[in-house]
Design a protein around this nucleic acid. Structure first.
Lengths: 254, 254
DNA sequence: AAGTGGTCTAGACCACCCA
DNA sequence: GGGTGGTCTAGACCACTTT
């Protein structure tokens, strides 16, 4: 009764999707090599790749460079309104997180950062680069940019645990406010390398700007997420934000 | 002094990106046809396509089926905490929105919807399908699912203006709370067709469940956004949500 | 009717991973 | 060293849009 797929690509996609949905292919399990799949579906590597790319775009499968295609795991719920400990957000979902520090350095703020953090020209920043593992798998590459004046000596500290916690314990700082900007993008260069994905692969970008208890902008971070690993969850219960004044009726016809 | 790109793909990508950044290619303008670009870069259509797909994943260019590649427009800021009128959110950014109603019908809730809306088995729902245009371009395909008991006769009304407004004016309803779930996905079938994109193209999925002033779940909607057309913006200013109790310190080493 | 993008074939070589 | 995925070539045919 069902309509036959119009193309080989959608046929391959639907077949694999079906095998995943019915549990024949489980989360984390590896698909056969592309040459084997080509044989299986009687097609060429390019056609097969188009089907796999569509499943990747949909977050159903993922790949690590030179290590084949795997079935994706359930997404982590990321709630931007749950401000304090990222680690706690993860453990509440019965999952585990690890953090690896890649580098800490002082640098000159780029043009984009200068704008985003409202800095004067030629400002210096501290940068902390980290890699986050969810249940043992790499899920995000994170860059923190800190205003040096507020965090003397922080580059020498241990950053494998929560940075937010370090802020509180050593600098008496807690966040009163964070501004998030979230959008789909692609990974290149260092980011793609660290996430172990092909340049040009889709990711989810999460940028965050943080203000301390005095309302002062103190740091920001750029999180590059594997796009199949996360879901943004927001609950607007009885909230009214500053930039949402009393609503005015909109003219008809809009 | 700069490192030469390792591959043709990244060379093509960087060249086009540069032309866009410097304004030589402006938002909305069409790239030359793929055969012309192949000639220009001395490569084949498949290699060129890989480069264009990477730029598409990054939201720099977009395509309409059989109509070529175009430079993307600036993203719309979408603030889930700004609850009331979507139309107003758009006009505040000095942009224009239009809505086209595609279909209205009564249907049996799917398994997924039944779970998401906490319905008993075999429930009926009203469905309203709409297409949203931002500055004249299609940006999202939206499906609303309404609990029929709460909205008698609504299928016969005009849905080209704000649905939220209709709720208020005709059914004395306003939202006290909305739960959002946002994640990257791919477009297939009806969605891809209406958005005029190729099946398997990346999109941004925004699911929303709405509660009225009595805290009762009344409707939900599924928004399929062109993934380069939107950015999620959240400001957590002094907010504490119900599912974020007093934070407990996390054991060291997490 | 001409031109465009979408799909598809049948190969090749290389870089990287693992045994 | 064998197998894998990533890159790349040089074509073909079809569906769709535009003129």
């Amino acid at each position: 009764m069902s309509v036959l797929p119009a193309t080989q690509i959608s046929h391959i996609r639907q077949t694999l999707e079906n095998q995943i949905d019915t549990g024949l292919l489980q989360a984390g399990s590896r698909l056969p090599s592309d040459r084997v799949l080509c044989e299986l579906f009687g097609t060429t590597r390019i056609t097969l790749k188009d089907a796999l790319l569509a499943l990747e775009a949909d977050g159903r499968i993922y790949r690590e460079k030179h290590k084949g295609w795997h079935v994706s795991y359930p997404r982590l719920d990321y709630n931007p309104l749950y401000k304090l400990y990222f680690q706690r957000m993860v453990t509440l979902q019965n999952r585990s997180v690890e953090t690896k520090v890649l580098a800490t350095r002082e640098l000159l703020a780029s043009a984009t950062l200068t704008r985003e953090m409202e800095l004067p020209a030629l400002s210096k920043l501290y940068q902390i680069c980290r890699l986050r593992y969810l249940d043992g798998r790499i899920v995000s590459y994170v860059e923190h940019f800190l205003k040096p004046a507020r965090f003397p000596g922080i580059l020498e500290q241990d950053h494998t645990k929560s940075l937010t916690q370090t802020y509180e314990e050593h600098y008496g700082l807690h966040f009163s406010r964070s501004r998030f900007s979230i959008y789909p993008a692609a990974a290149y260069g260092e980011v793609a390398q660290q996430l172990n994905i092909t340049a040009g692969s889709p990711i989810l970008m999460i940028k965050r700007i943080n203000y301390d208890q005095h309302g002062t902008l103190v740091d920001c971070d750029h999180e590059y997420w594997r796009h199949d690993a996360v879901r943004i969850v927001v609950d607007s219960q009885d909230q009214q934000t500053a930039d949402a004044p009393d609503p005015v009726p909109v003219p008809a016809g809009m």
